[in-house]
Design a protein around this nucleic acid. Structure first.
Length: 426
DNA sequence: TCTGGGGTCCTAGGACCC
DNA sequence: TCTGGGGTCCTAGGACCC
């Protein structure tokens, strides 16, 4: 059996741990640039605040009802996530925990006897809450996909289930599948959901009755086949070793407001490149390819919102590198290729790919001395930026004015990662 | 006049996830 | 007026190799 442990309204819960005055009060968290609502707690949900809606459209509702609003504080959420996962690793054994996202992980329960599944789940839930202050929901079932089904139903009926649902018999599984619409299945997105509805496949139960060949043909090849196997109760997605090394690293941002001068865009790209290179060095990697893209602002032709197409290009480096200075130059040069005078842009980004292990680590005897020095310089910059303040040391290409920077009007303190932002108890 | 078969690697793009 | 950011996997098709 496998469990999924999922933090309830994670970002909101993180904020609320340090603001006990917000207990039972509505809370929302906004995306970068304060653009969209990306988390809302039950109280905010009850008021009718929609998920992933643009903030400006819900603003009146939020203000009228005294909903507390936060800009996203990823330093805080990242650290709280680590605490939750660490608690589960201590309880269940490191090998049995697969972190799936910032607020979810799968737990291997193969060694737990069937009659103890419920109490094991309860114990996990209580310990996480006690040690971190974060409430979680837990779904337990024979496969990952079914555990997600269980988790969703547990969350939907918090009071009846106490946020825990164990699907350990065929009958319970069948009932759960009948209560789950196809678009709520993990792995079925908008495109496939529409396709399934056209074929009159409306619930997870309907889908589970199709055969594997059909899934292969209609749901994207092997991906669909695996999904269907899981729905039928046959394990197909095994617990995976955590991906230590990413295969792609991206840093992309909306601008605070549209930007039409090339200098600002180059500064932004230089800044994003620095950030991406930092992530790259953290995993001891080096990149062979750097890509840059910009998204022009489009006249709002009073239709439905959609991102305009992104305009991008890439450069293949002569040799994989993790040195910020070696990455900034080609990145900024690419901006010259992409930028069109007279247009204004709302977003830009940098992606690093073709990642390999960095061979020029500190003090490597087999690379020229100058390279070792460069790498030491990078380490020093990373350390200073981490311990002092983000970007206290930066490359000149990043500029100093930054009037393209995103908005963050409701930022909470980084309670758990900065000494000078510790919560004070008076 | 007649021109095979079997591979690998890479990239772009589509689908999905939180 | 104002709509996030960062990932994964898979497939198809082209280039290239012997």
């Amino acid at each position: 059996m496998v469990a999924i442990v999922d933090c309830n309204s994670f970002y909101c819960s993180c904020e609320r741990v340090f603001r006990p005055d917000l207990e039972n009060k509505p809370v929302v968290v906004l995306s970068n640039n304060d653009g969209c609502i990306i988390a809302r707690n039950d109280e905010a949900k009850a008021l009718g605040v929609g998920m992933a809606g643009p903030y400006f459209m819900a603003k009146k509702l939020i203000e009228d009802n005294g909903v507390t609003t936060f800009s996203s504080n990823y330093n805080l959420y990242g650290n709280m996530s680590w605490r939750v996962m660490e608690t589960l690793r201590m309880l269940m054994g490191e090998k049995n925990v697969e972190v799936y996202s910032v607020d979810e992980c799968f737990i291997n329960l193969d060694k737990i006897p069937k009659h103890l599944l419920q109490s094991t789940a309860l114990n996990m839930k209580q310990m996480v809450e006690l040690w971190t202050g974060i409430k979680v929901s837990i779904g337990v079932a024979p496969t990952k996909v079914l555990s997600k089904v269980a988790n969703r139903l547990a969350k939907k009926n918090k009071f009846a289930t106490n946020c825990i649902l164990v699907l350990d018999t065929p009958l319970k599984i069948e009932e759960a599948l009948k209560k789950t619409k196809v678009d709520a299945i993990w792995g079925i997105g908008g495109q496939y959901a529409n396709k399934l509805k056209e074929k009159n496949i409306l619930t997870a139960y309907d889908l589970s009755k199709k055969d594997l060949f059909w899934a292969m043909k209609n749901l994207g090849g092997v991906v669909g086949e695996r999904l269907l196997r899981e729905l039928k109760g046959e394990k197909s997605k095994t617990l995976q070793k955590p991906l230590i090394e990413k295969k792609m690293i991206a840093t992309t941002r909306m601008f605070g407001s549209p930007v039409s001068d090339i200098k600002s865009i180059k500064e932004a790209i230089a800044t994003y490149t620095s950030r991406a290179a930092e992530k790259l060095r953290r995993q001891h990697g080096a990149a062979k390819t750097i890509s840059v893209f910009v998204i022009p602002k489009e006249p709002n032709n009073n239709g439905r919102f959609r991102h305009g197409p992104s305009i991008g290009s890439y450069f293949t480096l002569p040799k994989a590198t993790s040195l910020t200075n070696e990455l900034i130059k080609p990145a900024v040069d690419l901006v010259d290729k992409l930028f069109e005078k007279g247009r204004s842009y709302k977003k830009a980004g940098v992606m690093l790919s073709g990642l390999v292990a960095d061979s020029s680590i500190q003090g490597n005897l087999f690379v020229p001395h100058s390279n070792n020095c460069q790498r030491l310089l990078m380490n020093m910059i990373d350390n200073v930026n981490f311990s002092m303040r983000d970007d206290i040391l930066k490359f000149a290409a990043s500029g100093t004015t930054r009037n393209w920077k995103m908005q963050k009007n409701f930022h909470s303190p980084r309670y758990t990662t900065r000494w000078d932002e510790l919560r004070e108890v008076l």
